[in-house]
Amino acid sequence: MKQKFNIITSTCVPLPLENVDTDQIIPARFLKATTREGFGDNLFRDWRYNADGSLNKDFVLNNPLYGGQVLVAGKNFGSGSSREHAAWAIADYGFRVVVSSFFADIHKNNELNNFVLPVVVSEEFLKELFASIEKDPKMEVEVDLPNQTITNKATGRSEHFEINAYKKHCLINGLDDIDFLVANKDKIEAYEQHR
């Protein structure tokens, strides 16, 4: 899980829908596992498969034209349930970056805690990116975490994205919050005594 993050250049998988909730990313009936592995098989399960279990050929993950480590989605991605299984499914499927113009709070944290980078771009950038992918499914984006930039390589358009310095340090160095918290126990005990 703790994959170090630097610069990723990849083709994209477009999902031009708004308000994609975590129930769609991974339906509740697949939350019964007690490990973190294997959720990628059921990523977007009910959109990927028809009711009879056959592949839904119209869904983008089943379209051989599209692939890569970057998922591009419409605004308000990851709303609803706090299930981290959604982030596990995205990571397990092989995505390292999710690009959208807006993320739901809890899901955004869950992605970061699983070394998947949520990149918030402007509506204009997103619209152009969808258009570029539609024109050429093999076009690439470059996501540069150290410099906090994302570039649409088809148009050359580049945009700065926000991430706090602490989390950026964690992603680049493959560290997680528990490492940090456990190393700070003395501060926690001091807080408990003085509250």
Binding site: S82, H85, I106, N109, I178, L181, N184
Partner: peptide, 23 residues
Amino acid sequence: AFGIGTSEVEMVLASQCILQTRP
């Protein structure tokens, strides 16, 4: 009171603390 992911549950189990950006 707010909802969190499983990694954050682990943080609280391990340290009774969580790292959060102030909303």
